[in-house]
Design a protein around this nucleic acid. Structure first.
Lengths: 204, 204
DNA sequence: AGGAAAAGTCTACACGATGTCGATTTTTAC
DNA sequence: GTAAAAATCGACATCGTGTAGACTTTTCCT
């Protein structure tokens, strides 16, 4: 709750640094698209954001920190969207809805999501961010499977373990498809949905 | 067929460089395990192999080339093993056999396989190597699915597309599990096998 | 054996990217 | 309007990379 007395039409002060921070992250995202992580240099990012290297280090301690912040910003989006999604009782509908939402996510944020996956090993912070995101998905899938009649539990053929495998299937399939085209993503989604439905026992 | 006249007990000459090359690759693999790709420096590899940086550049043009060679050596193994596997007619048996073989592969070469996956984007040569390997698996899975009665074709619910998704599921699931322990790998295998069987229509 | 060519090795160098420091300027808040 | 905080800059030290040229060892042929 910032701004204790909203009188005087002046909007809450926004630090100049906040704008720069956003500019840096935006530039980083653009460069990631153009040249990829390795080729992208700290100098490039600074230049794109309209400052020098030295100034950039005032905001972030390294290239990895910049990218971590970018991933965090994007992943925040996913969590919000995830929370806002209405729960459906009917498993078939739930699965279809989940897959449609996933396609949207990858269409909008495919680049950053792929980057997050790629850097999960080398940058522990990003790894944690992505793991947490995956856990949200796995929990959701587990719930759907159980509602579809799959036995709850962690044994290899029970809901929890299956959900994990299905999550990785979706991650990897979308990862590859999103590098190609929107059409491929759509196809990939249909295939994943089919396997998910089958695994849930909802298809012959 | 080297050595045109096997007389004289002298074994076929092995270039000194061949030994070094192997030492370099072995060292690289060890360091990959100890410090990971990023932390590992060309100097480290050279030192481990008993030569200086300068000498190493005589064999490989860069760190990436060294790792590419390591991946190539490992992947060669996979292909051989893949070729040597007897084909089973009964789908259920084929799936079980394939999963058992996959567990073995990841137990033996997990580290290099994970590295190959990680570097697939940044090092095109490794990407090709790994893609080709994946294609072998996808083809094999497709064949099994078709023999189990899944309709052939590339539509989202037909054998080819399903095989691709299942392949990525296995890759990613094993990738994560092989970082943990052999037990996890075994569990992961059981889960993947179950989903594969279900997708093939071989389980209620 | 012996000597030239090929294979292997080393040290030194140039380059590019990183991250740090202290000085300086701009913003913010009172 | 001014002092503290925020932001920016340029210069520097460091480290890893890749290249070049000189030198040594191995291989192979006669």
């Amino acid at each position: 709750m910032p701004g204790h007395h909203p009188a005087r039409g002046r909007r809450a002060a926004e630090r100049k640094g906040d704008v720069r921070e956003r500019a840096i992250l935006d530039t980083c995202e653009a460069l990631l698209e153009q040249k990829g992580y390795d080729a992208m240099t700290v100098g490039d990012i600074a230049q794109g954001a309209g400052i020098t290297r030295g100034a950039l280090y005032f905001y972030y301690g390294s290239k990895q920190e910049v990218v971590t912040a970018l991933v965090a910003r994007t992943v925040e989006h996913l969590w919000e969207r995830s929370r806002a999604t209405a729960q459906t009782d009917e498993p078939r509908q739930a699965i279809t809805a989940a897959m449609r939402r996933t396609v949207e996510l990858w269409n909008e944020h495919g680049l950053v999501m792929r980057t997050a996956i790629d850097l999960s090993l080398t940058v522990p912070e990003i790894g944690e961010l992505w793991n947490h995101t995956a856990d949200l998905f796995i929990t959701a899938i587990t719930a759907v499977l159980e509602r579809a009649g799959i036995q709850a539990g962690t044994a290899p053929d029970q809901a929890s373990a299956m959900a994990r495998a299905l999550c990785w299937m979706i991650e990897r399939t979308f990862y590859h498809a999103s590098q190609e085209s929107r059409e491929k993503l759509q196809d990939a989604s249909a295939t994943c949905e089919h396997i998910w439905l089958t695994s849930a026992g909802l298809i012959t």
